[in-house]
Computed example of a mutant assay.
Amino acid sequence: MSNVKRILITGESGFIGSHLINYFVSKYPDYQIHGLDILTYASDRTHTKILEKNKNYFFHQIDIFNRKEIINLFAQYSFTDVIHLAAESHVDNSINNPLLFANTNIIGTLNILDAFKTYSVGRFHHISTDEVYGDLNFSDLAFTENSPYNPSSPYSASKAASDHLVRSYHRTYGIDAIITNCSNNYGPHQHIEKFIPTVLASIYNNQKIPIYGSGSNIRDWLYVLDHVLALDLIFHKSSPGKTYNIGADNEISNLNLVEIICDLCLEKKIHPNPRKLISFVSDRLGHDRRYAIESQLLRSELNWMPIYNFNNAISETIDWYIKKFSKI
């Protein structure tokens, strides 16, 4: 094999993965970029199939739970590096089917780690979530990289377990592993089941906008392209064994976010009175009150800062989804 980087990006046809692999294929033409995805309901190949015209892009449809296929793939291509995003990620689905989340997020990650340990010599970058830390009271300080794990849902518990596996492989086997924990992402390509696309689909179709509980739950919203820029920087510049939180310091309650979206949709003449569609529904089981993470370590060590303005990015996000809905 040559000295060319051969990077495997798992979950390449998912929300964040599709943005990341498009960015890497374009920015690094000398890298071989391999995308892997099982193509579940939450994947959308249309965002990555366009990459097939690039000589440095390759696609593999494989389930990371299938240990034999993963081992064979690594044996065939000897990937130098892995950026691991493949995961089941919808909290409601994890409540209904925890086993699926354990199989994909825990065992699937273990399969990738074992293959990497055997065949790879570069970096294993594991993408995780701020939900592993649990939730905060409204007056608490934001979580840091040193905060203890306290997951609330089967989804966040499965991601916490995968984080621990990655750290254990770094310490036990000496692999070059790094972990990033991000806040809630928003932007184009996200599946309709997620919060912002659900709100926009409801407005577009003149249906009730479902809001859990009172809508007071708070999330830190990170634009997906800011996340991609952070991942690129961390993958290339951080030290082995590091963990970084990636957040935008952009805490907004669910109700406030819906109101912002409604007002923009009114301004854009998408609906004559979107706020009248707001409907409060029974709260999610174990619904976390507030997520907030401190990204100072990333900002001070690697000089990362979010560059996308929230008002502009959420407006462009609305435009993208409305255009998508109009074609259905």
Rank of each mutant, 00 (worst) to 15 (best):
104 T>K: 05
216 S>A: 15
103 N>I: 05
103 N>L: 06
193 E>Y: 11
216 S>K: 15
3 N>R: 07
154 P>Q: 04
111 N>M: 07
50 I>Y: 09
138 F>T: 13
43 S>P: 05
214 S>L: 08
178 I>Q: 02
58 F>S: 15
4 V>L: 08
47 H>L: 09
268 K>P: 00
180 T>R: 06
44 D>T: 11
149 Y>T: 01
277 L>A: 07
172 T>G: 11
174 G>P: 02
319 D>C: 06
238 S>I: 08
170 H>M: 10
228 V>I: 15
163 D>P: 06
144 T>F: 02
38 I>A: 15
110 L>K: 05
29 P>R: 09
224 V>L: 03
208 K>G: 13
85 L>S: 09
220 D>Y: 03
192 I>C: 12
78 S>A: 11
224 V>M: 02
74 F>A: 03
6 R>W: 06
268 K>Q: 03
94 S>D: 03
203 I>P: 13
169 Y>W: 07
21 I>Q: 06
139 S>Y: 07
151 P>N: 02
231 L>G: 03
64 I>V: 15
171 R>G: 12
225 L>S: 12
78 S>R: 11
320 W>D: 12
171 R>D: 08
320 W>I: 05
260 I>D: 06
65 F>E: 09
196 I>P: 07
251 E>R: 13
30 D>G: 04
21 I>H: 04
209 I>G: 03
315 S>K: 07
28 Y>I: 08
163 D>K: 10
58 F>N: 15
253 S>N: 13
148 P>F: 03
181 N>K: 15
198 T>D: 15
189 H>N: 14
270 I>Q: 02
5 K>Y: 10
316 E>A: 12
152 S>R: 11
52 E>Q: 12
203 I>H: 14
243 T>Q: 15
168 S>C: 06
277 L>P: 14
41 Y>I: 05
322 I>T: 14
28 Y>S: 10
290 R>I: 05
202 S>K: 11
189 H>P: 09
36 L>H: 06
259 E>F: 00
292 A>Q: 05
20 L>S: 14
294 E>C: 10
19 H>S: 12
146 N>D: 06
243 T>K: 15
199 V>F: 09
267 E>W: 00
281 V>R: 13
44 D>R: 15
135 D>F: 07
321 Y>E: 14
318 I>K: 09
164 H>R: 03
141 L>N: 15
197 P>A: 11
127 I>E: 02
47 H>R: 14
226 D>M: 03
293 I>E: 06
298 L>S: 01
266 L>N: 00
242 K>E: 07
303 N>H: 06
44 D>F: 06
178 I>H: 05
147 S>D: 03
75 A>H: 08
295 S>R: 13
279 S>P: 04
248 A>W: 01
190 Q>N: 11
179 I>A: 00
89 S>T: 01
259 E>I: 05
293 I>N: 04
96 N>E: 09
177 A>W: 04
87 A>Q: 03
133 Y>M: 08
124 F>K: 15
